[in-house]
Write a protein that binds this DNA or RNA. Sequence first.
DNA 1: AGATATATTGAAAACGACTTTCACCTTCAC
DNA 2: GTGAAGGTGAAAGTCGTTTTCAATATATCT
Lengths: 149, 149
Amino acid sequence: MVGGEEAFQAYLGRRGLKKTRQRDAIVREFVKARRHITAEDLHRTVARRHPAIGLVTVYRTLRLLEGAGLAKERRFGKTESCYEPVLGVGHHDHLICTACGGIFEFENVEIEGLQDRVASQHGFLIQDHKLEMYGICRECRKRGERRRR
Amino acid sequence: MVGGEEAFQAYLGRRGLKKTRQRDAIVREFVKARRHITAEDLHRTVARRHPAIGLVTVYRTLRLLEGAGLAKERRFGKTESCYEPVLGVGHHDHLICTACGGIFEFENVEIEGLQDRVASQHGFLIQDHKLEMYGICRECRKRGERRRR
DNA sequence: AGATATATTGAAAACGACTTTCACCTTCAC
DNA sequence: GTGAAGGTGAAAGTCGTTTTCAATATATCT
Ligand SMILES: [Mn+2]
Ligand SMILES: [Mn+2]
Ligand SMILES: [Zn+2]
Ligand SMILES: [Zn+2]
């Protein structure tokens, strides 16, 4: 997410919103964070340096980042959402390991093309799509083999 | 969902569970219902004839149906789950209209084949997948055009 | 710098979709 | 029938997230 912080401040300015210490800290950590971070995890990280910042403000800032087009919310399991940076990261879909929770990303132009075809066959104007595959990742399969012996 | 009721009773018997008036009523309505029904909607329907049946029991029965392999839970939006019959309905994916909430189903063997290829390229053993496309359906597009004039 | 208007904050309460608990009630094998 | 095992609805609890609100920070204007 190159230039995320500047883009965010531009967004705030444009909307008559204010730059605050809390937002700075949260956005900085979000940009540094590994992908697919939950609000709770981001809050934990931010709170190391800024213990007074509340989880609420993290949620609010994530929503702003989303509005600015800088973060994308993802909902994999049935529980928590996680968020990932958008800038500098192209569209992609996900492979999710049901054993270790690991998330792997992929892009497949052929699939996307076929999706478009299906959509237009149905007269649909596509805005977004989500392709998730759930299964056992390579590592967890190895681990399973080992255990079975 | 052909023979859903009998399959359900067989499942109950197999697991030492009991056949009850409530379960009968709920399963009957579920089988009759249109696809993609929420627990709340199913409860409303059931409650017309059986006002004493609680939403809790609907949830519990849906979970049983799922365990019996007769219902599949789907989570489209970010809020409620909905459930659809499994028997007599092959695997399919969904087009969801963000304007009217309509849900359209499709199957595409080519896409599924490519998915398998992507998965095996990553060493993944696939258990399940979900492909959802969000956009504006044909009807809503027409309605939009009309409005714009 | 000081005053002012407006936005932002954290704590606590509310929310929505479920799930669990619990005291009473059915079901069903004997 | 009887009794053990399972099922029931109401109410309370859970979990992630959002809303409310009084106090506070920020940007803008003098
Ligand atoms: Mn990703
Ligand atoms: Mn369907
Ligand atoms: Zn794994
Ligand atoms: Zn529509």
